[in-house]
Design a protein around this nucleic acid. Structure first.
Length: 237
DNA sequence: AAACATCGCAACCGCCTTCAG
DNA sequence: ACTGAAGGCGGTTGCGATGTT
């Protein structure tokens, strides 16, 4: 079947439905092959756009909320060492994205410049000299746990709000056609959803021993060598 | 209360790198 | 070794939210 290829590419803010769809298909296909995910998901987005959305917003390991003073100090510290290597700096701060860090740095510089213009006479040293304990919080699971998601057939509905007034939870609906129940609906928390993404229903169809994604990886991937799901959506596709 | 300024964040753009064929 | 496609990264922009006058 040939999909019409000339549909215009969607731009601008992502909808919750798009988020849900993307999460669902990243679950299926892993966080690689973004062009493929973009196509198969039916999202009228580019692969790049999908990747960005995933990395900056949907990734299960992301910390939400403002940077802590400690994190800010770390960023300043690392910036003195690494310069504008945002992704490198982000690598030092679990759960933070390069975009977040970049935005923080811009704001920081803006403030800093304002300050230094105001008090032109005194040179204000960067607070990088502040003693920074080397311990970086490793608890990266600040994910909202009180949001609820309804799983059913490939359709997404927002149920509750969180984080700066935006909706970041959704109900992802899908039919489990290969099971006796024609469809199932399930209410679960965002944590559960992300767990679900990590260990999806396809568990049931994955060949035994097909835990073929390492624990560090965030999603199982069909690209993994030992992934085989004859009944899954993927293989149907 | 309205107008304006500033801030914060999400998303896009374009360039560079990597990798498969 | 070469080439094109896809991914990754840093810079930039647009817009809504918030603060200030």
């Amino acid at each position: 079947m040939v999909v019409k290829d000339e549909e215009e590419v969607r731009k601008g803010p992502w909808t919750e439905e798009e988020d849900g769809q993307l999460a669902f298909y990243v679950n299926l296909f892993g966080d690689r092959r973004w062009d493929f995910v973009a196509k198969v998901s039916g999202l009228k987005r580019t692969g790049k756009s999908c990747r960005l959305r995933w990395v900056n917003y949907l990734h299960p390991g992301l910390k939400r909320g403002k940077l802590t003073p400690h994190e800010e100090c770390l960023i300043i510290e690392y910036h003195t060492k690494l310069g504008n290597r945002w992704s490198k700096i982000a690598g030092k701060l679990p759960g933070r994205t390069d975009n977040e860090i970049k935005n923080f740095w811009r704001a920081y510089m803006r403030k800093h410049n304002n300050n230094s213009q105001e008090k032109k006479k005194t040179i204000v040293p960067l607070s990088s000299s502040t003693s920074i304990s080397s311990s970086v919080s490793s608890s990266s699971s600040n994910f909202p746990s009180h949001n609820h998601v309804q799983l059913q057939s490939h359709k997404v509905n927002i149920i509750s709000d969180d984080r700066t007034g935006r909706n970041n939870s959704f109900s992802l609906d899908y039919h489990q056609e290969d099971k006796e129940s024609s469809s199932s609906t399930q209410i679960c928390s965002m944590d559960e959803i992300w767990n679900d993404i990590a260990l999806p229903e396809i568990d049931t169809v994955i060949r035994p021993g097909c835990d073929g994604f390492d624990k560090g990886a965030m999603t199982p991937s069909i690209w993994d060598d030992n992934y085989y799901c004859p009944n899954s959506l993927l293989w149907m596709i």
